[in-house]
Design a protein around this nucleic acid. Structure first.
Lengths: 204, 204
DNA sequence: ACCTGAACACCGTTCAAGT
DNA sequence: ACCTGAACACCGTTCAAGT
């Protein structure tokens, strides 16, 4: 074929199809992706520098999907909770992407706007020198909760004893996605409560 | 050479050297591992079923290194905090292993004893139907905090504006490992505070 | 500028051959 | 039972050739 009059590929399209492939099959390879795009593997290298860059395109796409409203001056706790909810939800929409993103160190993160918004809200709330740690903590929790979505259930372990504390704990909780969602919300509430208490002591 | 009188390899040795390789080079391949063991790649398959099983051996090793003391009837909050500290510390000792473990779904988890201990402590503390969610939440946080250890610093982003909330937040915090450790401890304290409050309301 | 097709290095795994 | 060495399928990447 050689060069077509109209380019057959684009970076957005590559990212689109790669993401769809991951959602469908849990992973992607260059040959598989090329096939899906109706093109030869080597063609991709005219648009991206390599596999790593495709992963970064996907990372950007997921990051961009985190809703990031302009902060309102009231209710910092609600703002922060919504941020982390959206953070986790962005991953939850593409569970297999999570492990892909953790396996490759990020190259650059241009989601500064998001951090600025959160930093502003926390600063206004009075967290002062705690602002960066608090952002870290919330992000760690969101990542961990996202990983929880693809982790195996403790409940699935076959050789569970009967009548133990763990057995009772499992019997008292839902399983699967419902369990993960419920746990996430409780944990988020714990963190917010903790933040409110910490702020109270800071200001006292 | 053919079969030696004394086996040249063992599963423990394979796991040992693989872990050392990951710590040193950030990753491991079968040829590289075989080379390090002074053996041909195909020899490994007489001891393990494949690469995936080697990863699981490493997972077990890290999991076993999580200190898991017998619970004492007093101070559930201290027990829980120590558990999560040890959980994260086990990963922190081998940072590159974290991404390896998240990239492969676990096959079986035989660390039931650990969960039983924590479940017992939480049950005695009065968490009742919250026991499993609380375990989930704490583990999520430990995983997220472990990932934070290998994540890039927000602070490293080159194009940071001056005089913004984020810039001030970064200026007010340490960087690197020290930042991660400090943030982890604060977040753990937030969670414990949240748990204490939640217990108070449950019992009221 | 952009697609092709051949080529290369590398990886995980299998298996018959040897003791 | 356990190591070897050849072999295979597959993957990521390069590059000269074509338009």
């Amino acid at each position: 074929m050689a060069r077509p009059h109209q380019a057959l590929l684009s970076r957005t399209q590559i990212a689109d199809v790669a993401l769809a492939l991951i959602d469908r099959e849990g992973r992607f390879t260059i040959p598989r992706l090329a096939d899906e795009l109706g093109v030869h593997p080597s063609s991709l290298y005219h648009h991206v520098s390599g596999r790593a860059e495709i992963v970064e395109l996907i990372r950007d796409r997921v990051a961009d999907s985190i809703t990031n409203d302009r902060p309102k001056p009231t209710a910092w706790a609600d703002y922060v909770a919504d941020w982390i909810r959206g953070y986790r939800a962005a991953f939850a929409a593409h569970p297999h992407v999570i492990t892909l993103l953790t396996s490759q160190t990020v190259v650059a993160d241009h989601t500064i706007a998001m951090y600025e918004n959160v930093a502003l809200v926390l600063e206004d709330a009075g967290f002062a020198s705690d602002v960066l740690p608090v952002i870290s903590i919330l992000e760690s929790y969101a990542w961990g909760a996202a990983l929880d979505l693809v982790a195996p259930e403790i409940a699935w372990t076959p050789d569970l004893p009967r009548g133990t504390p763990l057995a009772r704990a499992i019997a008292n909780a839902p399983i699967g996605r419902e369990r993960a969602d419920a746990a996430f919300e409780i944990g988020l509430a714990l963190l917010v409560t903790g933040l409110q208490e910490r702020l109270r002591h800071r200001q006292a």
